[in-house]
């Protein structure tokens, strides 16, 4: 299936990646070419096949429901582009 310019714009928006209007036709064409490659999968008969959800069949380990970590505000914020009063700081979200 070919991706049109509107779909490319929508995908960029969902991915939260700014794509200038002028770059959208190129992006749409590029994604379409890759999707055409993926469409080889349509030649496989997958009737009755379960999708693979776990690489190795294993039961996830469980652990006691207790706090094992925390009280490390300093290291958590150390790499923040902007932090204030012990919080990550971002542009205004609520008017």
């Amino acid at each position: 299936m070919a991706i049109d310019i509107d779909t490319a714009r929508k995908v960029a928006g969902l991915a939260r990646i700014r794509v200038e209007e002028a770059a959208l036709p190129g992006l749409a064409a590029e994604l379409s070419r890759i999707l055409a490659f993926m469409e080889e999968l349509n030649a496989v008969d997958v009737a009755g096949v379960e999708p693979m959800v776990s690489v190795t069949p294993m039961r996830l380990r469980r652990r006691a429901d207790v706090v094992t970590d925390g009280d490390c505000q300093g290291p958590v914020l150390a790499n923040a582009p902007e932090a204030a009063e012990g919080f990550f700081a971002v542009p205004r979200v609520v008017e």
């Binding site: 995908v11 969902l14 991915a15 999707l35 999968l41 999708p51 693979m52």
Partner: peptide, 21 residues
């Protein structure tokens, strides 16, 4: 963006689920 597309509503089964099968 490709990953976003194959996981988006309406295409999840056609691409992602088929690939997992």
């Amino acid at each position: 963006m490709l990953g976003t597309y194959v996981l988006s509503a309406g295409f999840y089964d056609a691409y992602y689920n088929r690939a997992r099968k």
